[in-house]
Design a protein around this nucleic acid. Structure first.
Lengths: 157, 157
DNA sequence: CTTGACCTTCCCATGATGGGAAGGTCTAGA
DNA sequence: TCTAGACCTTCCCATCATGGGAAGGTCAAG
């Protein structure tokens, strides 16, 4: 069983030392054993765990999700159903975000398409941003609000 | 010229009061005039500016980009070229992120496809995360490093 | 013994947003 | 005129994952 300092564990796992300490601090990985002088010591199993974490991060799982995945990984009596559910839910999140970004992208592409992009100031992109449809002045009053939408005149100074 | 407090400006612009103060603090919008008692006062032009910011945020522009867009918007001698460049660069960022997320999504979808998702523990998703190809132990030494990859034995405790 | 690579903890920063406390201001209504 | 309560102020803290950097201790090699 190869024992090593945090730097080597970092090199071998792909998780840098700063993050290893952080993951320990937030409870994602177990507190490392220490030498008499306080240095953290890791073994190959620890490195394997860190690689798992790294891989999961690379796939965009959040720390919370990784905590769950680690639990399942280390649980011999897990059901693959749980794992699949986690992964599917992550895929759904990704889908949602991809969809939003594509929508934005298409809107922008449309605007860009209509912008001359020359020395003149006229620009449909700015015009679109300046359009007035962002307000909430719909006339629907907020609950428990007497003054919020009232147009009282004010004495300044 | 309709003058109003921050709450009404928030309602009319869609940017909440907290964020209006924040935008002022970071220099995105001008410091508001104040009443004698310190209340911020806004007019319709300010609200228009806030809506512009809101719209740009809705399109995913960063605060920095919005600062630039606001400058262009308020500059009569702007060239639409600059605006188009900004928008195109944002589109590129979006594309990049979308591409990354789709890659992740496809990887995950592939893994999910091969996972039974039943009561048994066997799970290709976990197997994949646990795969060892995340390390940096390629034998390529770091610059200025004498000890980083040396396998010195250690006295523990 | 010195060098310097490595380790420790602690604080701070990012970007955009928000919660909440403590306290002051304003207007409507009794 | 007083009071209720909606509204405003500033200040601090939290999120999420990551990292920079300071101050100081440890270790192995020369």
């Amino acid at each position: 069983m190869h024992e090593m300092n945090i730097g080597q564990a970092a090199s071998q796992s792909g998780v840098n030392a700063k993050m290893i300490r952080h993951y320990e601090a937030i409870g994602l990985i177990k507190p490392a054993k220490r030498t008499g002088s306080g240095y953290r010591i890791y073994n190959d199993i620890d490195v394997h765990t860190m690689r798992f974490v790294k891989q999961a991060r690379n796939l965009g799982f959040s720390i919370g999700q990784i905590k769950a995945l680690l639990g399942l990984w280390q649980n011999q009596r897990r059901s693959s159903r749980k794992v699949k559910e986690l992964a599917l839910s992550h895929i759904q999140e990704l889908d949602e975000r991809i969809r939003e970004m594509q929508e934005i992208k298409h809107t922008l592409a449309h605007l860009v398409h209509h912008c001359h992009g020359d020395d003149r100031p006229d620009c449909p992109i700015l015009d679109s941003l300046a359009q007035a449809h962002a307000g909430k002045q719909t006339g629907i009053p907020k609950k428990n609000s007497k003054r919020n939408l009232t147009h009282y005149t004010r004495r300044i100074g």
